[in-house]
Computed example of a mutant assay.
Amino acid sequence: MSEIIIQNLLSPVVLFFVLGIMASLFKSNLKFPDGLSEGLSIYLLIAIGLKGGIELSHYSIESVIGPIFGALFLGVIIPLMTLIILRLMKMDLKNSIGLAATYGSISIVTYGAAITFLEKSGTTYEGFMNALVVLMESPAILVSLLLLNIIEKNRNVSEISYQSMKFIPAPAKLIDKEVIKESIFGKSILLLLGSLFIGLVLGERAVPTVKPLFIDLYNSVLILFLLNMGLIAGKRLPEVKKHGFKLLLFGLGAPLLFGSLGVFVGSLAHLSLGGSTLMGVLAGSASYIAAPAALKTSVPEANPSIYLGLSLGVTFPFNLVIGIPVYYEIAQWIVF
C-alpha cells in the first residue's frame, strides 16, 4: 500500500497540485487568468466525454446495463447517507443538503487523475467508464433537492379543509424547473453528455480528428488544470478550520466510506480491477463545479465555504494523494 501511495505522490499531476497549494499558502502572486481556467475546464469535460462515447460505441447495451444501474444506485444512496450522517452530527438542514449534493455528485478532475494513475500502473479498465461519469453527475443533485423539498413540505403548517375537516399539506413543487434545467443543461453536464453522444455516434471515425488535441495532450492539460486547482484549494483550506474538527473528519472519512461502497458496487456489476477502482473514485469524490452551481440558485442559504471548502480543500487533495491508491488496493482485495 505505501509503495502505491508513494508512486502516486511522485506523479506529475499530484506534484503540480501540491505546487499550487504551496504557492497559495505562501501568498505567491501566481494565478491563472479566469479565461484560461474556464478553457481548461471545458477542455477536460469535452475530452472525457469524447473518449467515453468512442469507447462506449464498442460495447453492447447488455454489457453496460449492470454498471449503469450501479452508478445510478450510488447517485441516489450517497446523498441520502450523507444527509443522515450530517443530521446525526447536528448540522443544520440547508448545509446538510449542500454537502449531500456535493458529495453525491462527482469530481471530473479526480476521475481524470485516477485514469492517469491506472495507465501509469498498467491497469486496464472498461472504456465505457467515462460514460458513467455523466450518469453520476446529476442524480445526486436532484435527489438532494428533492429530499430538501420533502422535508420542508412536511414541516409546513397544514391547511384545514373546511369540507372534510382533514389536514391537507399546502401545495408545493418538489423540485423547481430551474433546478432541473441547471442539473441537466448546466455547463459540465451539457458538455459531458454532448461530447459523449458525439463520440458514440461517430465511434472510431472521430479518432483521427480528436486524437491530436483531446487524447494525446490530455495528461499535459490535466497538469495545468491541477496546478490551478492547487491554487484554489490552498485558498479554501483556512475556511474549513472555521467549522470545527467534526466537519474536517467528515471530509476525510466520507470519501473512504463512499469510495469503498463504490468499489463494492463496481465488483457486483462485474467490473474489472480498473473499472471497480474508477467506480470507487467516482463514489468517493465530491463535486466543486456542477453541484455548487445548482446550490447557488436553489439553496442560497447553504454556506459555500462549507461545501466548497470541504470538497475542494479537504476531500479533493485527500483523494488525489491517498484516496485513489486506497480504492485501487480495496479493489484488489475484492475483485481478485
Rank of each mutant, 00 (worst) to 15 (best):
G244P: 12
L72E: 14
M165R: 14
G20D: 09
S2W: 12
E119Y: 04
M165K: 13
L193D: 07
V207S: 08
L40Q: 01
G313P: 10
Y288C: 03
I330G: 07
L227R: 00
S188L: 12
L273I: 11
F336S: 09
M22N: 04
L80P: 07
A286T: 05
K153N: 14
M91I: 12
M91N: 09
F336P: 03
I289G: 01
V207G: 01
P255M: 04
L273T: 05
K181Y: 15
I4P: 00
E126S: 14
I84C: 07
M165Q: 15
L273F: 05
V210Q: 05
K27F: 12
A113K: 01
L231F: 03
V210E: 01
L196F: 15
G49N: 13
A100F: 08
G309C: 03
I334G: 09
G194F: 07
A290E: 05
K246W: 13
N219V: 09
M129K: 05
G35E: 15
F26K: 09
T315S: 15
L226H: 03
L222I: 07
E152Y: 00
A291F: 05
I6Q: 04
G313Y: 06
D92L: 00
V240W: 10
S161D: 15
I54A: 04
S161M: 09
I223W: 02
Y218P: 04
E239G: 02
M279H: 07
G313A: 06
E38V: 00
A254I: 10
L74G: 05
L86P: 05
D34V: 01
V157G: 02
Y218E: 10
A331V: 02
F167L: 10
L83E: 13
P79D: 12
K181T: 15
P317R: 12
I198S: 07
V299A: 11
L30K: 00
I334M: 15
N29A: 08
G70P: 13
T82S: 12
E159L: 11
I223F: 12
G203L: 11
F258W: 14
F17N: 11
P317N: 10
N303H: 12
G203W: 05
M91V: 11
E159D: 11
G20L: 05
Y327D: 07
H243W: 13
V326L: 15
G253N: 06
G234I: 02
V314L: 13
I330W: 13
M81F: 14
A283F: 02
K51R: 15
L99P: 07
G75R: 09
L217E: 05
K181L: 15
P79H: 10
L213F: 15
